[in-house]
Design a binder for these strands. Structure first.
Lengths: 128, 128
DNA sequence: GTAATACATTACCGAAGGGTAATATATTTG
DNA sequence: CAAATATATTACCCTTCGGTAATGTATTAC
């Protein structure tokens, strides 16, 4: 409480947990998913644990949910994430650019097979 | 332990604390600083608390330290920070670009006086 | 209506985290 | 040498956090 806590503060706390980051990644890669679909990606975690994480993400605004039948469909809210972190990212922007270029060089050399470095898979599907 | 923990994992935990983020900002804006200089920026915190944070940052590799007399001079290691977060940032890059443009537009309209949006203050001084 | 499904909520636990105070160590000063 | 300065380390406290289990609630299926 002795440090200015901007709105980005909550985002950093949200991103501190690897499970939550992976949930965001899944929503980004596969589009909107139900709680069950998300939970199935975490065999070592109980479903209610995922639900709790989702509530945290929802409270932070980085995901939103709509009911469909008896299931809740969660989707990423990328603008909230981006707008909240943009000021911080901008501070170190000069460093990102160099690091990102290096990443692309590696990818282009075919030494990285990680799908995250390619641009074809952040697709949107089934908006309704 | 049920989730892949990449090397970026430690970085996210480091960034989760606002005091540590501010320390990084100070080092980025003012160049290398001693523990005392950094601690003076946190009136509500005891010096050993800052020291502990600095050891954490050092363990993560995002800062390095060299003795000068009886004081330790800490400096930012921007490449470690950038390289560690670049993969994650790349995933959501399309969203950052939009948010960062919006930030610049606001700055250009003179509605933001925050020095963080200007590019003149990330200076390097006194490398030795 | 009853049972089953899909989530959310609550209570609870252990571990980790941030903070202080006290102590230790290295360096300079007198 | 002793005293002072600058930082690191340790022990300890309290809070937060991630996790589970159990219970609650809404919706669908029978």
């Amino acid at each position: 409480m002795q440090v200015m806590s901007s709105n980005s503060d909550g985002l950093f706390r949200i991103l501190a947990d690897p499970t939550r980051r992976l949930i965001l990644d899944l929503l980004a890669e596969r589009g909107p998913l139900s709680v069950g679909q998300l939970a199935s990606e975490f065999p070592d975690l109980v479903a209610s644990g995922i639900s709790k994480h989702l509530m945290g993400l929802r409270a932070g605004g980085v995901v939103s949910a709509t009911r469909r039948g008896r299931q809740q469909i969660y989707r990423l809210e990328p603008d909230v994430l981006a707008a909240g972190l943009a000021p911080w990212i901008a501070k170190y922007e000069q460093y990102w650019s160099a690091a990102l270029e290096r990443l692309r060089d590696l990818a282009q050399e075919g030494r990285v097979k990680d799908e995250l470095t390619s641009r074809k898979n952040v697709r949107r599907k089934r908006l309704k």
